[in-house]
Structures are given as C-alpha cells and as structure tokens.
C-alpha cells in the first residue's frame, strides 16, 4: 500500500493552506495594490453614489483585517461580484463556462498522452537513428511554440484560406435550432450523445479539432521528451538487456517492462504541464471564440472587467491545485518508489 492515510491527510491539509494563500494573494491584488479598489468593483461608468455604495459594500473604510474577513466571507458565500461585461454574477458565469474548457483540455490531454507516449517509445527504440532525430526535433519545436500564434496560423490556414474546418464557436447556432439541441450538462459531447443528436455531435467534434490541436502541442512535446528519455534509460537497465538476450519479443518487453517505468514520470510531467495548458486555454479559447473559462477571463482582460478577471483567476488556481493533488496521488499510486 503505497498511499498512506497520513499522506492523504497531509496533502489535503496542504491544499486548504494553499487555497487560503491563493485567496490572500488575490485579496492583495484587488484590495491592497489599487489606489481606489472600489473603482475596480463598479466599473468605469459608475456614478458617484454607486462608488460610495461599493465602498460600503466592500467595507473599505474599516481596518484591513476586517476587510480580509469580509473578503473571505464573501468568497465562501459565492458573492464574487458582478461581471461588468455580462452583467451576471461572476460565479454563475464561471460555472456555466467550465464544462466547455474541461471538454477541450481533457481531450487535449488524453490525445497528448497517447500520441506522446507512442512517439516517445518509437524514438527510444530507434535511438540515434533518423526517425529518433525527427521525433526529437519535432518535440522540441512543439514544446516551444507560442500557443496563441499557432492558433492564429491554424485558423488562417484551415478556416480562412482552405475553409475545411470551422474556425470558432462550440456549435453552429442554426444547427442547434434546427435539431432542437438542448444543453443539459453543458458538456456538449455528452449532451448530444444523450439526445442521440448526431449532426450536433459531429459539428461539436469538428469545431474542437483546431483548438484541441493547438492546446495539445505543449503537453505533447513534454510527453514525448519525458517518455523518450525515461525509455532510453530503462532500455539500458541490466534486466531489460537480459530479457533482450533471452529472446523476449520486443513489443512484449516494451509493454511489460519499459512502459511501466515510463508511465509514472510522464503522468507527473503532464500534471506540471496542466498549468501551461490552462493558461494556453485562455488564449486558444479567445482566438477560436470558444466560450469556456479561458474565453471568459480573456474577454474580461480585454474589457478590463476586474470582478470577472480575478474571480476567474482564483477559480482556475484552485482547480489547478486540485489537479496537482490528484496527479500526485496517481503518481504515488503507480510508482511505489515515491516517498512521503
């Protein structure tokens, strides 16, 4: 049993501590740094009495620790302010846009993981040959690509010059009306499957292709590199060599012995790259007009919608900490050598 109860308890405690820290930092950003925090809350077109009301609401005339208390209380009550752009409570906006981002990032991650491990293994077994060099160079380029640039390039090529793939939105609005598609969970793949609405499913998938390709590049590059270097090291191990001499088929050897050594570190590195992917989603969703959290925060940034910017960022940071916790637990579960 590699995962002990104390380890879990410790990690969850740490998660709470970190979430608390995230809130403190965001409190500093919203209430301490700006000269007049109430202006961030009400927007540029607010009248004097609105600003005065906001001052009262935010308790800005009280000492800083009282302000912090009210800030945390508001946060846990779900009172994250009202977005200036959508005129809706920020927390509501975030919850409605979360499924879109999850659909995109999870798909990108699964694809990056599968393709990355396969390419990495291919490179490792043909170590030093041309194919290994090609894959290595590919992985370096792919991990260095500016996500926003790749998104624009793909969009230009595949939906403007050669309009094969739609360049934006989650689903064609006219198709939704025609087929009577109703979002239930807001995970459109799931929703269209439940309603057996295949035209919508096809359209949703088609519109996911470009954003997913853009988004998966960084984790893909990382996975290839990680798999390749771990597999090369593992192929050098004496027991693997022995098996080779003994005449075990290569495919079986790869699957039974090498892959096991590779998976744990690859998952750990994928967890790390989740952070980059979620910030990538910010830009990718903005470019492909894909209404998830990234799009929400991105639009908020472009229109200086502070409640939405900070609410979105705090939310993403907490999700990120959760993902890291899950990844660490999976890592510990797969690799018994991990110590706590």
């Amino acid at each position: 049993m590699p995962i002990t109860r104390t380890y879990l308890a410790k990690r969850i405690l740490l998660l709470f501590l970190v979430a608390f820290g995230v809130l403190i930092i965001s409190f500093i950003i919203t209430r301490v740094i700006p000269a007049r925090p109430e202006l961030l809350w009400v927007g540029i077109h607010a009248r004097a009495e609105q600003i005065e009301r906001a001052r009262k609401e935010l308790h800005l005339d009280e000492p800083i620790y009282v302000q912090l208390y009210y800030y945390l209380a508001d946060f846990f009550r779900g009172n994250w302010g009202v977005s200036w752009r959508t005129r809706q409570p920020v927390i509501l906006d975030i919850i409605t846009s979360l499924p879109a981002t999850l659909e995109l990032t999870i798909t990108a991650f699964i694809l990056a993981f599968i393709i990355g491990v396969i390419l990495g293994l291919i490179a490792a077994i043909s170590y030093g040959k041309a194919i290994d060099k090609v894959i290595s160079v590919f992985s370096i380029i792919v991990a260095s690509i500016p996500v926003f640039w790749l998104g624009l390039v793909l969009q230009t090529i595949f939906s403007i010059w050669y309009p094969i793939l739609p360049g934006g939105m989650r689903v064609d609005p006219s198709l939704v009306i025609e087929t009577g598609f109703k979002p239930i969970t807001n995970f459109y793949i799931l929703d269209s499957l439940i309603q057996l609405n295949f035209p919508v499913l096809l359209d949703v998938l088609k519109r996911m292709i470009l954003p997913v390709i853009t988004l998966m590049m960084y984790p893909l590059g990382l996975t290839i590199r990680m798999t390749r270097s771990m597999a090369i090291e593992s192929l050098q191990e004496i027991y693997v060599k022995a098996l080779e001499v003994w005449g075990l088929p290569r495919s079986k050897m790869l699957y039974k012995y090498v892959l096991k050594n590779v998976i744990a570190p690859v998952i750990a590195s994928l967890g790390l790259s989740f952070g980059y992917t979620i910030t990538g989603a910010l830009m990718v969703e903005l470019i492909f007009v894909y209404p998830g959290i990234g799009y929400y925060v991105g639009m908020a940034l472009l229109s200086f919608d502070y409640p939405a910017i900070l609410g979105g960022i705090v939310f993403v940071a907490i999700i990120y900490s959760l993902v890291n916790l899950v990844v660490d637990i999976i890592h510990a579960w797969i690799d018994p050598r991990v110590k706590f």
């Binding site: 740490l14 501590l17 970190v18 979430a19 608390f20 820290g21 995230v22 403190i24 930092i25 965001s26 950003i29 919203t30 740094i33 700006p34 961030l40 989740f274 952070g275 980059y276 979620i278 910030t279 910010l282 925060v297 940034l301 200086f304 502070y306 910017i309 900070l310 960022i313 993403v316 940071a317 990120y320 900490s321």
Partner: peptide, 19 residues
C-alpha cells in the same frame, strides 16, 4: 507554495491587469 499554486502565467496576468 502559495505562489506556486497559481498556474504559471495567470498570477502575472492578475498583477499586470491591476498594475
């Protein structure tokens, strides 16, 4: 750890948007 809890670019975005 608290600073590391933010995904890489996001904290910078938050600070830059206010600064």
């Amino acid at each position: 750890d608290m600073f590391l809890a933010y995904p890489p670019l996001l904290l910078a975005v938050a600070f830059a948007s206010v600064l």
